[in-house]
Design a protein around this nucleic acid. Structure first.
Lengths: 109, 109
DNA sequence: CTTGTAGATCGATGTTCATCAATATAGACT
DNA sequence: AGTCTATATTGATGAACATCGATCTACAAG
């Protein structure tokens, strides 16, 4: 995956019917966001200036380390976060382009 | 359900960490949108001026009548569409308030 | 009241997914 | 090399969900 929604820009969801492929792709983006743990992880990463170390978020969301690793992978594959290794740790940063695509469909554009 | 996201307005997802209840509620909204059939149904309803009759959309999305009925129920319970009976038929109209709440979290506010 | 039609509900099925324990990998430091 | 720590992967399990056929309900018109 790891892509943005190239079909997302204009017109928004309320102005013309979605094609089946566009609906399928957009639904994948929303599916990434359709989990409370992933939403919290993303907001933690996005709201921290400079990003967040994976080591810090495990305890914040009350899930096991494998579960958090799984959700971070989903966020990364969905293109919502970038990952970078720094020594022993891996730092995540928000990559809001995919979000902006989704948001453009929801209202503005 | 059938509610808007009362906790959604300000600040957006990228500026402060979500609380667990807010994340749970917002994830429910995204889960409603995380299905291609529902996205197409919503865009069909929202893009038709005056709304759409349920009788018209079954064939448009290539699913059985019970499946379409199920998805329309999910959209309605999620507050994304309103329903109104007109004689034998039921008309759906987009109710974009919940969408706007979600969009406000994704970017603007 | 009967018939026909629109839509919802029920029950079953196969699939997807969140979760965790156990294990593996990978880097840093001695 | 060996050890410690951070993260990923594997495998299993239970729950949620999309789907459909069959059936039920609700309304309108004879």
């Amino acid at each position: 995956m790891n892509a943005t929604v190239e079909t997302a820009c204009c017109p928004p969801l309320t102005q013309s019917a979605l094609s089946e492929p566009a609906a399928t792709r957009l639904a994948e983006v929303f599916a990434v966001l359709a989990d409370p743990v992933r939403l919290r992880l993303f907001s933690l990463i996005a709201s921290a200036p400079g990003g967040t170390c994976a080591c810090d978020v495990v305890e914040l969301v009350n899930r096991s380390q494998p579960t958090v690793s799984h959700h971070l992978k989903v966020l990364h594959e969905g293109g919502l976060v970038t990952r970078e290794r720094r020594g022993r740790w891996i730092w995540y940063q928000a990559h809001p382009a995919a979000l902006a695509d989704a948001a453009s469909l929801l209202d503005c554009c």
